[in-house]
Amino acid sequence: MASLKQTPSQTVGPYYAMRLFAPDQNRLVPVSAPGRIRVEGCVLDADGVPMEDALVEIWQANAHGRFRHPDDPRVDVPLTPGFVGFGRAPVDLETRRFWFETTKPGRVLAPDGSSQAPHLSLVVQGRGMLRPSFTRLYFADETTANAADFVLVRVPEARRHTLLAHLVSSDGAPTYRFDIRFQGNDETVFFVFD
């Protein structure tokens, strides 16, 4: 049994960007990086109104499927110099979109030994959010990998589409659209990782 109790979560409030965002924290790779992709979207409230002060944090493996972390046991898979795999993307006040530039992650193992489909882990916070919401972004064009993904198969089929990012532009870096919705029939699937 745990001997101490967790410190309760509180909202980041409207002014988190004073500390929790620095320029380029949403650029995980340099503009020159091969295989660079762009992901953008809105965080929508119950009325479908894009929030102006939400924060999306992302965590991902590199293109080879390796996490820069001491608990990733796959030391035979190379790290990418300079690539951490963490990003912070606040919603832009003018466009009401968040965006980040990164590389598509490689496949990582699931607890049952299968390969997970390429995915980004997202943590959504904001004013009016007393706790972080955890979700995942998958790529709609990875049909085969998605169909067998350890996490996606645990999501009711009718809701899986809320976790798919769609290619919307191939001019320059391929751009994927991923909106995060609170409430409504198309609410984004959020997870508790147990």
Binding site: D45, A46, D47, M51, W59, Q60, A61, F67, H69, D71, D72, V108, L109, A110, P111, Q116, H119, S121, G126, R127, G128, M129, S133, F134, R136, F150, V151, R154, V155, R159, F182, Q183, G184, E187, V189, F190, F191, V192, F193, D194
Partner: peptide, 20 residues
């Protein structure tokens, strides 16, 4: 009220993506 999930979160076992 308008910024909270309505569905229950889906329980999923932790994977390498979450323990890193």
């Amino acid at each position: 009220v308008k910024r909270s999930p309505a569905f229950d979160a889906i329980l999923v076992p932790q994977t390498i993506s979450e323990i890193t």
